[in-house]
Design a protein around this nucleic acid. Structure first.
Lengths: 347, 347
DNA sequence: ATTATTTGCTCAAACGTTTTACTAGAAAAT
DNA sequence: ATTTTCTAGTAAAACGTTTGAGCAAATAAT
């Protein structure tokens, strides 16, 4: 029985312009003109154009975007460089970028840098090699020099989530200062006196701004303690090993409230507090940047600031597409969009 | 001041093979040979090869993958088609696919189908148009016919998360039957008598298998009630509007326990139960497929089955890469990998 | 000393498009 | 009747690679 070997059937070459051209005895260029929608301006007769379109459809023609891209110099691809696509925050970002890009007929390639400048560099180079029309980049610590060199090359990009100190490029971020100020102020208003702040990497612009909001809120409230004793830095890759020790340390320092600079820190800490039997908000108060689903089902719910991810992505794609089209009329701008304060029961 | 207009500086054309060739007064082909690592087999002298590599580095050469791909017929890209990249389950999948693909020097493009067959078809066509070397596809309801036609074309793909009934292709899924059987059995063992099942789309193979595990566990325990009255189907896009009504209905039907077929249903329902003041596990028992972070911080923690996503992705890439290399020796296989039962306090 | 082989490189076609320049014939203007 | 303009199309170069075929010089074999 042949049917047994059905999975061995095969090839069926891709149909290309020349196949259509041959079938209709016209030139290959004509087919190209018609199929790229230039029939009018190149005054191809309507009947012939119709015939071309028809046979293209009949034959199942699909343009080869590699060839097209090579010829036109546009790949129709946007590169998205996040820290880690499996982090729900970046997952959402990817989705909105995908949506916005699709509106402009772009497709998205992504890469996860893991906050590692070398990985970022490799990925950016790969993307450039693939002739992406532009990139949306979450910059990482110590990537300035490379990103500066990237600026010299003719490929447009915009930062998202964070900006990069030494690199004067467009950036779209949420208002990290404001959100953190609000969260910290809320803790203070609720009567918590010694508030610890936990962050993953104090070098990143978004984290810096969040810490700035935190410290300023403290100062504005007249709370004066050696702030540096209350700011804890713990890398994501040390989360399992170092976080608990630091939380314990903070508690020993007399902290009765916690400000977490992002969802991963908040979630991991929540597990710890549960383990050691601290009750929220009685024993300790908690607030956090980001609004993952976990904060909604946690008991009590966690007060937080939700970032305007969709808006950020729309803005970013908007700016990027203008840059791609060469409308580089204006100086790079840093757009900072306010998030939404969500008050729950954790403080 | 010129520095004011720094952002207006520009172009710096991409350097290509011919630039290197000219600089060294050698042929363009030679440069290509050296840079693609074929110096030995094409016996280029070591010193010249070294010089080529050196100047390539000095000039910052980056191969144009569009041109390369056009010539070689390989793009080095794998397409990943998920239902929604912002769903943490698929986010993790994307990450592991990215990792595994990177090992084989592939890059990943993704697309979200939203469980919509037309979107899926469009995305697949776009990917094919971009000459992806292969695809990893989460098939959706009513995409059989299109996927069958895709089989006819020479582009290899493998299913992940679900298989597609009428389409005989390789698939890597988690053991949905087993996991669901375990979860349901656990509920029964704990003494819950009337167990409702909630699913998003009863047509999908993974959901079918989960329901099968659920019903079989019931039957094996001698529990006999009109199962169809206890299976609720609610689409993701109806989650906000219909879910609550169905949960209420289930409760009115006397259900004292719930089996949720995926994380989104579980999480949303959790919020509802909290709202109406039902306590878990006393009033009702709960189990769920998937292990999102929310289930770890929820109080009580939610008993669930964690899918072996990383392993699934490794397997999928493995199979796909073999297909890409044309080693299509064997009949398509369906690989089903067992997940991990995580018992918490929700039942 | 001739022939055969190896070494180290060059040539040019090809991949599938897009697009500029051109042309043959028809229609319009002189 | 000749020139001009328009119409509807063709031809061919170009995009940046890879690669099979070829070739001259050097080395080895006879």
């Amino acid at each position: 029985m042949l049917s047994q070997f059905k999975w061995m059937s095969m090839p069926q070459k891709q149909v290309k312009l020349i196949d259509i051209a041959n079938k209709l005895n016209v030139s290959i260029g004509l087919v190209s003109i018609v199929l790229s929608g230039k029939s009018k301006e190149r005054r191809i007769s309507d009947e012939l154009a119709a015939k071309v379109i028809e046979t293209a459809k009949a034959l199942g023609y699909r343009p080869n975007q590699l060839a097209r891209g090579l010829r036109t110099g546009k790949s129709g691809i946007i590169g998205l460089l996040v820290a880690d696509i499996s982090n729900p925050f970046f997952g959402k970002m990817a989705r909105y970028i995908e949506n916005e890009a699709a509106k402009l007929e772009y497709q998205v390639m992504f890469g996860s840098s893991d906050e590692n400048p070398e990985k970022l560099e490799n990925l950016v180079n790969m993307f450039a090699s693939r002739q992406v029309d532009g990139m949306i980049i979450v910059p990482v610590f110590q990537s300035e020099s490379f990103l500066l060199s990237l600026q010299e090359q003719s490929i447009p990009f915009v930062f998202i989530d964070r900006y990069c100190e030494g690199v004067d490029e467009d950036a779209v971020v949420s208002d990290n200062y404001l959100g953190s100020y609000q969260l910290t102020s809320l803790l203070i208003k609720k009567g918590y006196g010694k508030i610890a702040a936990f962050a993953n990497d104090l070098h990143l612009s978004n984290i810096k701004d969040r810490m700035h909001g935190y410290t300023t809120a403290l100062k504005d409230s007249g709370l004066n303690y050696p702030v540096e004793d209350f700011i804890f830095e713990v890398d994501f890759d040390q989360l399992d090993t170092r976080l608990e020790a630091m939380l314990k340390q903070a508690l020993e320092n007399g902290c009765d409230a916690f400000f977490f600079a992002n969802n991963k820190l908040g979630i991991s800490s929540l597990k710890y507090f549960d383990k050691v039997g601290l009750t929220i908000p009685e024993d300790i108060g908690i607030v956090c940047f980001d609004n993952p689903e976990a904060f909604q089902v946690a008991k009590p719910g966690i007060t937080c600031v939700e970032q305007p991810i969709e808006l950020m992505c729309a803005k970013a794609i908007n700016i990027l597409s203008r840059k791609i089209e060469g409308k580089t009329e204006s100086k790079p701008e840093r757009i900072s969009l306010p998030g939404k304060l969500i008050v729950r029961e954790s403080c």
